[in-house]
Amino acid sequence: MTTPPTTPRAARPPMRRSTAKRSAALKSAIAWLIAAAYLFPVYWMINTSLKTGKDMFAVPPQMVPEDLYLGSYAAVFSPTYGIPQAFLNSTIIATSVLVLTLLIAIPASYAVARLRGRVTTSMMIMLTVVQLLPAIAISVPLFVMFRQAGLINSYLSMILADISVTLPFAVILLRPYFKMFPYEVEEAARIDGLSAIGTIIRIVIPTIRPGIIMIGSFAFLMAWGEFTFALTLTTEQSIQPLTVALNRIIGQYGTAWNDLMATAAVIAAPVLILFIVLQRYIVAGLASGATKG
C-alpha cells in the first residue's frame, strides 16, 4: 500500500523519527478512510431505515435523511411483518444452541485435549471434516429425518441442526485452552482430594473463562444468523426465526426498503452489541481458531 518514500538510510535519527511519525499519521488517515468506505453499507442500512417512503426514493439519494422518520421501526415492532414473533423465535433458538453447545463442547474439548484415545482422535477428525461441508447438503437428509420424526416446524429441529455448525467450531477452538492449562495444577487439586470431574469444574473451567465466553458468543452469533436450516426445516411463519422472516418479507414487500432496512438493523443490533462488548474474546478466537479450522 502507499507509504511515502522514507528518507534514505543516511538520515539522522531525529529527522527519521519525525518522518516516521508523519508516515504513521498518514497511514492512520488512510486506514480510517478504508474503514469508512468499508462500513458504508452498514451506514446506508441505518440511513435508509430512518427515511420516509418518499425520501428513500429521492434522486439524488439523501446522504443524511432530511426528515428523521421512525415509522419503519414502529412497523417492525408491530405485528405487520411478524417480526416480534420471529425475534422471540430467534432468541429461543440462539439461547438454546448456546447452552447446549457449551454443555456438549466443554467436556468433549477436555477429552480431546487431555485424554486422547482412538475414539477422541477420530471424533476430532470427524468434527474438522464436518465443519467444511455445505449446510445445504446436510439439510437434505436432516429434513427427511425430522419429517419422519414429526419434528418439522419445531424449535428442536432447528436447535439440533444448528449445533452441527457450532459444535465443531467450539471443540476446535476450546481444545487449545484445555491443552495449555498446566497439568500439575490439576494433579495438585486431585491430591487435595478433588475428584476428576470436580477438578475440571472448580479449577480448570474458571481459569479458561475467556475461551468459554468466546465459544459461547460464537455459538449464539452463529445460531442468531443461521438461515439454511431454518429455511429448510420450517414451513410455518409462526416458528421461523428473524433471518427467514427477513427473507420472506423481501419477497412480499420488495420495495419497502426503509422497513426492510429497519428489519435488517434490528437483526444486526444484537450482533453488533455483542461484538462491541465481547470484541476482545471474539477477535482473539477468530485469529487463533480460524487458522486451525
Binding site: 452498514v42 446506508w44 444468523g225 444486526a268
Partner: peptide, 11 residues
C-alpha cells in the same frame, strides 16, 4: 464478517 449473511445480502 460477523453480520448475519442474510442481513448483508439484504443491504
Amino acid at each position: 464478517w460477523i453480520l448475519p449473511p442474510v442481513v448483508t445480502a439484504t443491504v
